[in-house]
């Protein structure tokens, strides 16, 4: 179907126009899909939280509450956008777009199956790490511009946190790149046809995965690293003064970021759309199912963290990164390099 649309576009229009139209169509498809996916993740979070907490969760709107987040989104859309009088209006309004756009941009490079990948660049992983740091600028802007002390503290915490944990994310992914030898996501998947990287790289890969999950949770500002919002300390943190759709952007971005973090882990550690032992290799489109399935499992893991652990304090957050994660990570890279050099990886 994608092929026919592609051919039809190029046959009716000049090449330049056609490629632009095609890009817009793809962008719209992604935007629509992930707006809904974000809402679904919010619903999932609420349900999962409820089940952890001996509750039932949303069960009124739609079948077992399935339309609850849809209704919430509609409510937020129709809500008045308020702001503080002394806020820096331009930056205040700009901040949510930084966050949401950077979140959506990251989605472009994921290989959902062999064929569905919008943007397969040769520095895929690097692109993802770069993009995911831009969102922090939005949080900093929002906290700074809303002229609220609680928001400012939250924003400053976010800056500290992002600078520290960006390192761990990068280094733990770098550990895995040592096996693949490529930053391109499609090639990383190709390498994993001989076994997922977490199995190929065995011990260092598992350590790298753990570090990645910890740093990834911190990167998305979720509990136990939700210093940015820390509702028992800062009220609502950086988005204290945001309301309506601008708040919804922050909220949606958090969940899309969570998806991105889980999706990177799926791609790099768990073989993206590859099925376990190649059981559905003959049916390529099932790759989407495997990709989303693995991602959802990892997202569930992050939700499990959130509803179990207490929050760290800001200085402990930094201690964890600089005294534990970073040194372990550096040693881990050396071990991985040795393993790859001595050809000790497990391949099927």
């Amino acid at each position: 179907m994608i092929e026919t649309i592609h051919n039809w576009l190029y046959s009716t229009m000049p090449q330049g126009v056609a490629s632009i139209v095609e890009m817009i169509l793809i962008a719209l498809a992604y935007l629509g899909f992930f707006a809904i996916a974000g809402l679904f993740l919010v619903l999932m979070e609420r349900k999962v939280a409820a089940w952890f907490q001996l509750r039932i969760g949303p069960n009124r709107v739609g079948f077992y509450g399935s339309l609850q987040t849809m209704a919430d989104a509609l409510k937020l859309l129709s809500k008045e956008l308020t702001g503080t009088a002394k806020a820096d209006k331009f930056l205040y309004n700009l901040a949510p777009y930084f966050v949401i756009i950077s979140a959506l941009m990251g989605l472009a490079v994921f290989p959902f199956t062999k064929d569905i990948q919008a943007f397969d660049i040769n520095i895929g992983i690097f692109f993802l790490i770069a993009i995911s740091s831009i969102g922090v600028i939005g949080i900093l802007l929002g906290g700074w511009a809303s002229n609220n002390k609680f928001a400012l503290i939250g924003a400053m915490r976010s800056g500290v946190q992002a600078i520290s944990y960006e390192l761990s994310i990068g280094l733990s992914l770098l550990t895995m790149i040592l096996i693949t030898g490529s930053l391109q996501l499609s090639e990383i998947v190709e390498v994993q046809k001989n076994g997922w990287l977490i199995i190929q790289g065995h011990i260092p890969a598992i350590i790298a995965f753990m570090i990645y999950m910890i740093a990834g949770t911190a990167e998305t500002n979720r509990a136990p690293f939700d210093m940015v919002e820390a509702e028992s300390e800062l009220g609502a943190g950086f988005h204290t003064e945001y309301s309506g759709m601008k708040f919804a952007y922050f909220f949606l971005a958090e969940f899309i970021n969570m998806f991105i973090i889980a999706a990177i882990a799926t791609t790099v550690f768990f073989g993206a759309w590859l099925s376990p032992f190649g059981i559905t290799e003959s049916i390529p489109w099932l790759g989407v199912f495997w990709f989303l399935g693995k991602t959802l499992v990892l997202i569930f893991l992050m939700m499990w963290f959130r509803w179990t652990f207490p929050r760290l304090r800001i200085d402990q957050l930094l201690t964890l990164e600089w005294k534990y994660l970073l040194p372990i990570n550096l040693v881990n890279i050396v071990i991985m390099a040795l393993i790859v050099w001595l050809n000790l990886t497990i391949k099927f």
Partner: peptide
């Protein structure tokens, strides 16, 4: 590090148990 990870997993097992038995365990009244 070992003790830390162990206690974290113990905590997760407690909530995990409630998650698995959530179907009959809801304490809220509708």
């Amino acid at each position: 590090i070992y003790k830390g990870i162990k206690t974290l997993l113990t905590g997760m097992s407690v909530t995990g148990k409630y998650f698995l038995t959530s179907r009959k365990g809801a304490i809220t009244q509708q």
